[in-house]
Design a protein around this nucleic acid. Sequence first.
DNA 1: GGTTTCGTGGAGGTCAAGATCGGCGTGCAG
DNA 2: CTGCACGCCGATCTTGACCTCCACGAAACC
Lengths: 209, 209
Amino acid sequence: MSTTPETAPKRGSRLPRLARRAQLLEAAQEVFVANGYHAAAMDDIADRAGVSKPVLYQHFPGKLELYLALLDTSCDAIVASVRDALKSTDDNKQRVTATMHAFYDYVANAQGAFRLVFESDLTNEPSVRERVDRVTHECAEAVSEVISADAGLSRQQSMVLAVSLVGMAQVSARYWLAADNPSLPQEHAADLVASLAWRGIGGFPRTDG
Amino acid sequence: MSTTPETAPKRGSRLPRLARRAQLLEAAQEVFVANGYHAAAMDDIADRAGVSKPVLYQHFPGKLELYLALLDTSCDAIVASVRDALKSTDDNKQRVTATMHAFYDYVANAQGAFRLVFESDLTNEPSVRERVDRVTHECAEAVSEVISADAGLSRQQSMVLAVSLVGMAQVSARYWLAADNPSLPQEHAADLVASLAWRGIGGFPRTDG
DNA sequence: GGTTTCGTGGAGGTCAAGATCGGCGTGCAG
DNA sequence: CTGCACGCCGATCTTGACCTCCACGAAACC
């Protein structure tokens, strides 16, 4: 029997630096996701990781930096996911569907990372605000390029539309997750919202109001 | 000479209880909107109102109750605004436009009350979470009734669509406000998003995917 | 097998912010 | 004119959370 404590690191075990850091990040993510930034105490994170506070501070200079590290990962994940979805096909309708599914996947999986991005309670901190806004902005910009390529709208106009689509995906996905009635499976909900989005954005060059 | 300091209450002036309370609420709203809940100090609110902290605590039992009072007002305002917009006409397309304009008006005016609802940094507090979720839920429910009346969808399905529309309005309006380029006037932006929404939701009974 | 070294742990300092007590000035009744 | 009541202010207390100091134990090396 291998005695590798891969998922059950007991208290007192010495870990290599990178493994320890990864473990701390995972524990911190759990606590931040569950409690938010303010209600999350460094003691809780240390306890959750099975270490004491000083080791936490040997890996991260402070609470904010720890939070920002997790936030950066989460932000990069959703942005990359959206970019991949847009690159996955050349058919715009399928692009919409793929992007919507990317959002729903991110909200449903990713161990609640979306809470750090879309439900952060530290948006007054400029560094956090900047990152969170960046997510919406970069996602919308990626969508906007596709829109303005085919719809012939101004940059501002296509950005407003793109932000609308991103907001639709983000808010509906969070609502779907919060509504704990699994009568609507994830794929069906995403498809439904995708069809709404595609009806709205598809063939937009017509400006018949 | 009337010494009524109607809009410039200097420090030391004695006000009737209700007027003082209203003034405190206004000052608190400004500080909470500017700084968020956590960064807002009771000292700041008292200073902004031109009184000392004990007076504040003679009107409100604590910081949370003060915040909740403002939050309730803001929540009721947007929900009522959406309901009025939906009731304002029988043409569904104009309903969409009116509702979208209601959101944009709320975000642009209402002295930043939308920040308390859509950008609260106290969503971990259950009482706050409940109120904020209620706003999206009630707005979406009002929209959902119109949808399910005409589109023949299940309750869950029309709710997901309604939440999507609400999310679209909410996120795009906030983005439009944050983007300080007035190249897109409020009415144009709202009309653009309304047209997107109407194309998406109008004539939804077709399920051509 | 001894020593050195490094990581770990519990206990404590500091500080900000929410929440509260003794003086004071003002307006009114007699 | 004089005493009284009332509401406001400066100064203070406490709590809670972030962030470090001193002793211990285990691993590594000769």
